[in-house]
Write a protein that binds this DNA or RNA. Structure first.
Length: 992
RNA sequence: GCUCAAGUGGCGGAAUUGGUAGACGCGCUGGAUUCAAAAUCCAGUUCUUUCGGGAGUGUGGGUUCGAUUCCCACCUUGAGUACCA
């Protein structure tokens, strides 16, 4: 019987589906293990071979853990809300739910054919109302919570209200908006309910606020910071501008420190941790208040400008202040003489987009306000400037400028001729600022003079606090996350508006299902797409969504028109898988307590600061609310590397008549019969050679008269050829190329080939993309070589975490491995298995394979275990081994990687149960014990020859044998060695 | 600019605590089988060589009996990030 992958793979995929082989139970006496992939967004293009890489790795691990006796949860689902489906809906009018459904079907078919051991009974889709019901529910929990800094956790809003009622807000230590009025309990109790709501909104973990947002006019929505790359939208590359809008936000900043601390407790890749650390951007320093120098009347306090600085030790180096152009004090302090200049400058900077500002860091610009501030320690008057190098969104939007210690301040001061006092001992600042901290000694700084950085820093903060100028403070770069999107295809908010204040719909009436709309575009008056819905109002007496016409603002109210962002549904889905079909709860307590967290999470590094940060934030919140039992959702995370395509290029010529050449005939005649020409890659190595090859061809074929040979100019350009038309030897299928639907223009092209009539293409590694004709579809691979070969080959390409190129030709290696494996069992048509006792060599092969494969899987080094299988099968073939005692354990070892062939051969061996839970073979060291070792004999560290020696020999005996050996004498050529190093069982090294 | 990762044959890559560099596979060369091709099998394949050997893991140093592996400096490539006070 021949190895027939198509038949076998179909058979076992049906078997697994029918028997629900991989269905995980929430009740088991086995230890649990939870393996998760980052779920895909089901795009219209389907999967290419790069996508399943991580899924294959996690599947191998999941299957391995089942062999190791674990109860494995390995689910899959779809992140099915998102922009592409909506953009498609806008263009075609097709409902996004419809196209999403079609795309999911394609994904499912593609995933199924690769033989993943997913428990599909737990599938989730973020766009499914049964799922987003709970996304809405979490939103309500966030709305009903505030962050108590004293307890360092989120608490129910009712605890805050009860404090307000009893004590007002003076004792409350909360993470909240900046501009909160202070009130007593009496004042609170006298506030109108709308006023109370307004105040509470400033404390809630999700809240409405007028924020500067990144507005993308082309997409008609706001974008989060992580959705913008280089100043343009991540999807589509559209420009982004800043705009003030009322938006829902998430108070993620409350969790900044805990998100940072939590990184210490999880086994995630360092680069990923680094980028989260960077994104959170903790910096320690001080808040310092500078008084504005202005005449004050009796009952008026002078204005103060607060700045945040990480270098309070350099406070005596302050020679001016800079405010962001948007700073609220600018208009109040600007003097009349400077007003025109300042106004002009502000207008000019407002026009510059974020992108311009980023692209143009070098240009120094600013304006003097005419106002002065008082230096808190020296009492000196310092100028107050505005400049766009100070960002309104960070810190207080103002800086104390220390030109001697900060390059930006330095450049600004130089440019505007502001003094640059030097406060460092023995440091030259004539060329540049001195930003180093370590080893620097402060000078000219009153009580700080003579101190080193660390001491000066401490003392400065101490004095600032003592004299009441400010206080030590830790700042975070992490901003609260905007949570509203002006889109259709996302989760609706469970929110209606009464007297302009948001109200939560009672959780019992969820889900609030996305309404039908005529058009997916914003309304004509600029409202989000949900503004097009006719039935989108909340009836508070009937507790249901009703027609907008019924809105009376007494019992029927308008519903929120924004939808949630893409990261809402993905921030908690890993918890849902634990109890995916629970209609009554987010997930049962029993399920959550049993599975706890993801043990292994595999996905792309592009989610470092988006999904992975938001998901950690929600998990910590849910933990505070005692909804989930752990505060980090994934113990270990691996980023799989990207798979690149290996593009193929063909060289096309263009033949022109050289400019200014006067000849009798019309120029066209010289070249009119010359077809489009392609030149095989190895025929030339330079442009000159290329030209000669083409010319000779033309002359030879009489397409060009020798008289005109010097009149033509030949140019070369490389164009992409579809990789499916190229074989393993880089030879192009010429007919296939000519007949390719996209190559209509080349139907009549001529090909200058090699001597053997082959045509070679050039290769280059590029990102896999349609436009580069290098996309490889796994469907075709599965058809031709099978899922097992695809799985093995994806792993064989190289280390999981590395970026690596795909070259389909290499798959023949793993395919013939599978055939060789098959042949160990089958001799011709017959299954031939021996029940005899294995030989020592056979046992050695098996056990070194067990050892290596187990180590490899534990280290996620899947590429090397594929090599190990190949070595094992090669050795067993050489040993002509067909013994059950060897082949059965071998099948178990291979089954996580190539499950179909393993199941098939396992059943051929007479087993009726799936191989998937058979115990993993146990390594027995006794099978690898050797009596002799082929010692490398080195001279000065260089191996020159090897010598088979018994392992029983002592160092002295080894030395004697080696020194007497002819080859040793030849190497030494009569010299006496200075030293002989002998490491028994390892090496002999002769020095001298 | 800053942070991180990585540089090994024609190519993907291996060498797990410092101990035979190039495992395994692709490609290539030669051979067997075949009418022929595919498939399969066998042998060879880092470079160089006067066939004894010599050199060799981005470059230059260092530690060591011994370095792809550890240390220092530099070069190159890739990724992330970017006026964060």
């Amino acid at each position: 019987m021949q190895y027939n992958h198509q038949e076998i793979e179909k058979k076992w995929q049906e078997f697994w589906a029918e028997k629900q082989t991989f269905k995980a139970s929430n009740n088991s006496n086995k230890p649990k293990y939870y393996v998760l992939d980052m779920f895909p967004y089901p795009s219209g293009a389907g999967l290419h071979v790069g996508h399943p890489l991580g899924y294959i790795a996690s599947d191998i691990y999941a299957r391995y853990k089942r062999h190791k006796g674990f109860n494995v949860l390995h689910p899959q689902g779809y992140d099915s809300f998102g922009l592409p489906a909506e953009q498609y809906a806008i263009q075609t009018g097709q409902h996004p739910a419809k196209t999403t459904e079609v795309n999911i079907k394609t994904y499912r078919r593609q995933l199924d054919q690769i033989g993943f051991s997913f428990d599909w009974s737990r599938e989730v889709r973020t766009s499914n109302p049964e799922y987003y019901k709970w996304t809405q529910w979490i939103f309500i929990q966030l709305f009903n919570s505030w962050y108590n800094k004293d307890a360092d956790k989120a608490e129910d809003i009712t605890s805050l209200i009860s404090i307000f009622t009893k004590e007002g807000n003076k004792t409350v230590n909360a993470v909240c908006d900046d501009d909160i009025i202070s009130f007593s309990s009496d004042e609170w109790n006298d506030f109108s309910s709308v006023k109370q709501e307004e105040i509470l909104l400033q404390y809630r973990l999700t809240f409405l606020s007028d924020t500067e947002v990144n507005w993308c006019p082309a997409l008609g929505t706001v974008l989060a910071n992580d959705e913008i790359v280089n100043g343009v939208s991540e999807r589509g590359g559209h420009p982004v501008v800043r705009k003030k809008m009322t938006q829902w936000s998430m108070r993620i900043s409350a969790y900044a420190q805990r998100l940072l601390d939590g990184l210490q407790t999880i086994d995630w890749p360092q680069p990923l941790k680094d980028s989260q650390t960077n994104w959170i951007g903790r910096s320690q320093g001080a808040m310092v208040n500078f008084q504005v120098d202005e005449p004050t009347t009796n009952n008026q306090q002078p204005k103060t400008i607060s700045v945040f600085t990480t270098r309070p030790d350099t406070i005596f180096g302050v020679s001016f202040m800079t405010l962001a152009p948007e700073h609220e004090l600018v208009s109040q302090i600007t003097t009349d003489e400077q007003r025109v200049k300042v106004k002009t400058y502000i207008e000019a900077t407002a026009k510059r987009s974020e992108r311009d500002r980023m692209a143009d860091v070098k240009t120094i610009s600013g304006a003097f306000t005419g106002a002065y501030a008082i230096h808190p320690f020296t009492g000196e008057k310092i100028q107050i400037w505005i400049g766009d190098y100070v960002l309104a969104s960070y810190g207080t939007g103002a800086v104390m400028a220390v030109p001697c210690g900060d390059q930006r301040d330095y450049d600004f001061a130089k440019h505007f001729n502001i003094p640059i006092p030097n406060i460092f001992e023995n440091v030259d600042i004539s060329e540049a600022a001195h930003a180093d901290k370590e080893g620097t000694v402060i000078a000219n700084s009153d009580f700080l003079s003579g101190l080193k950085y660390k001491k000066a820093l401490k003392l400065a903060i101490y004095e600032i606090e003592k004299r009441g100028f400010g206080y030590g403070k830790t700042n975070y770069r992490l901003r609260d996350a905007v949570f509203s999107r002006q889109r259709y295809w996302g989760e609706p908010f469970p929110v209606y508006y009464k007297d302009g204040m948001p109200q939560m719909i009672d959780a019992g009436y969820l889900p609030i299902v996305l309404p039908e709309v005529e058009k997916y575009l914003p309304t004509e008056d600029g409202k989000p797409p949900l503004g097009n819905a006719d039935i989108w109002a909340w009836d508070t007496s009937a507790n249901k969504v009703v027609a907008n016409s019924k809105i009376d603002n007494t019992t029927v109210f308008p519903l929120e028109l924004n939808t949630m962002p893409g990261w809402a549904g993905s921030s908690w889905y890993f918890n849902r898988y634990m109890d995916a079909n629970n209609a009554n709860e987010f997930a049962s307590k029993e399920a959550l307590d049993y599975w706890k967290e993801v043990d292994l999470y595999i996905g792309g590094s592009e989610h470092a600061t988006g999904h992975l940060l938001y998901a950690r934030f929600w998990q910590k919140f849910l933990f505070d609310k005692e909804i989930v039992p752990v505060d980090e959702f994934a113990k270990k995370l691996i980023n799989q590397g990207m798979i690149l395509g290996t593009s193929a290029f063909v060289y096309k010529t263009s033949v022109f008549v050289k400019n200014g050449c006067a000849i009798d005939k019309s120029n066209d005649d010289v070249i009119e019969n010359i077809p489009t020409l392609f030149v095989s890659k190895t025929l030339f190595s330079s442009d000159d050679e290329f030209e000669n090859v083409v010319k000779n061809y033309l002359l030879d074929k009489k397409l060009l008269h020798p008289n005109y040979a010097d009149l033509v100019m030949i140019t070369k350009n490389a164009i992409h050829a579809d990789v499916s038309l190229v074989n393993a030897s880089d030879e192009l299928d010429i007919e296939g190329f000519k007949n390719h639907p996209l190559n209509q223009d080349y139907r009549d092209a001529a090909f200058i080939t090699e001597k053997d009539n082959t045509f070679k293409v050039a290769r280059e590694v590029e990102k896999m993309s349609k436009s580069k004709f290098n996309v490889v579809n796994p469907d075709l691979i599965c058809e031709e070589y099978g899922a097992d070969a695809l799985r093995l080959f994806e792993m064989f390409l190289g280390p999981l975490e590395q970026t690596k190129p795909w070259k389909t030709s290499g798959i023949s290696g793993v395919y013939s491995f599978l055939k060789k494996l098959w042949k160990l069992f089958y001799s011709g048509e017959n299954l031939e298995i021996s029940e005899e006792k294995p030989t020592k060599d056979e046992l050695k092969t098996l056990h070194k394979t067990i050892k290596k494969v187990e180590e490899d899987i534990e280290n996620f080094s899947f590429n090397t275990s594929v090599s190990t299988f190949m070595i094992a099968v090669n050795e067993l073939t050489a040993q002509k081994c067909n013994k059950r005692k060897i082949l059965e354990p071998l099948l178990v070892l291979i089954s996580p990687y190539a499950p179909h062939i393993a199941e098939e051969l396992w059943s051929q061996l007479g087993h009726t149960e799936s191989i998937s839970t058979v115990q993993f073979p146990v390594f027995e060291p006794k099978n690898l014990v050797e009596s002799a070792k082929n010692y490398p004999i080195s001279f000065n560290g260089k191996m020159r020859f090897t010598l088979e020696l018994s392992l029983d020999l002592s160092k002295e005996e080894i030395e004697k044998i080696v020194m007497e050996h002819d080859k040793t004498k030849a190497q030494l050529q009569g010299r006496t060695p200075k030293k002989v190093i002998i490491v028994p069982g390892k090496i002999v090294n002769i020095v001298g």
